[in-house]
Design a protein around this nucleic acid. Structure first.
Lengths: 130, 130
DNA sequence: TATTGACCTTCCAGTAGATGGAAGGTGCAG
DNA sequence: CTGCACCTTCCATCTACTGGAAGGTCAATA
């Protein structure tokens, strides 16, 4: 099938699929006219990558996971380890964002937000920690 | 003062400070030898940017905030609006990460993580939603 | 048959926000 | 005068795409 069909089936933009081929995540065959010809397996691999990306895995993690996915002799421990590392990163990001959120929402609540120049947000950014 | 002193005082890498000059966030003067010469005001502006970046504001937001900071006639409403928008973005990111976290931690708990190939994580990524 | 419009292709550039490194100038101590 | 720690600019690299230009292909219609 052509790239636009593969795009529809996977929910990935055609551009992104071309990019994934360029970085060797997938390798669809080519027809005589030079058009990419996606097999159902290609589409499945693209689906896999999409799911993994949606869960926040890096493209390099996706590459590794794809390798494990297509390796019938893999050990699930390897997969679990990658997932656990990623989970830790997510936790760290959440914590960081929560810290930002707390500070920022406090500042937003302190700011009158009117036409006057006095602004606790700017004061705080300027280093006035009151 | 030289760039390394400005770096120490602001906690920003010298490379980053040069970058901020390159994109016209700051404009330190130059000595006769071509070295950047940072005034205390320059350092304060860098501090301001660092704080704002730490709170997750984009560099473009920082540029706007710096402009408001140095404008004695600003309306605090403008600042508050930028901060509120940013806060919404942070909230959206947190929500997204929490969703990922939930799915992923469930999968990690379901995976034995041993030497056998059976792996619920891969099964899920492959589209098996059980 | 000619033409239109929707596909497809490659290639180049740009996004955010730095960061790394090379090549070379400067300043100061011993 | 030599060494070393600074400083400079410039160019490349990272992540994960995305946009757009220039041009080839295919199928339906006038």
């Amino acid at each position: 099938m052509n790239i636009s069909d593969a795009a529809k089936r996977t929910g990935l933009p055609a551009k992104t699929i071309r990019y994934y081929e360029q970085i060797d995540l997938i390798s669809p065959t080519r027809g005589e006219n030079g058009y990419r010809d996606f097999s159902f397996e290609d589409v499945q691999l693209l689906h896999f990558v999409r799911r993994a990306r949606d869960l926040g895995f890096s493209v390099e993690d996706c590459r590794t996971l794809l390798g494990l996915y297509t390796d019938a002799n893999r050990a699930s421990a390897e997969v679990k380890s990658i997932a656990q590392n990623h989970l830790s990163e997510i936790d760290a990001k959440i914590e960081q964002l929560n810290a930002m959120r707390e500070t920022l929402s406090h500042l937003v609540h302190c700011c009158d937000g009117d036409s006057r120049p006095t602004c606790p947000i700017l004061q705080n950014l300027a280093g006035d920690s009151r």
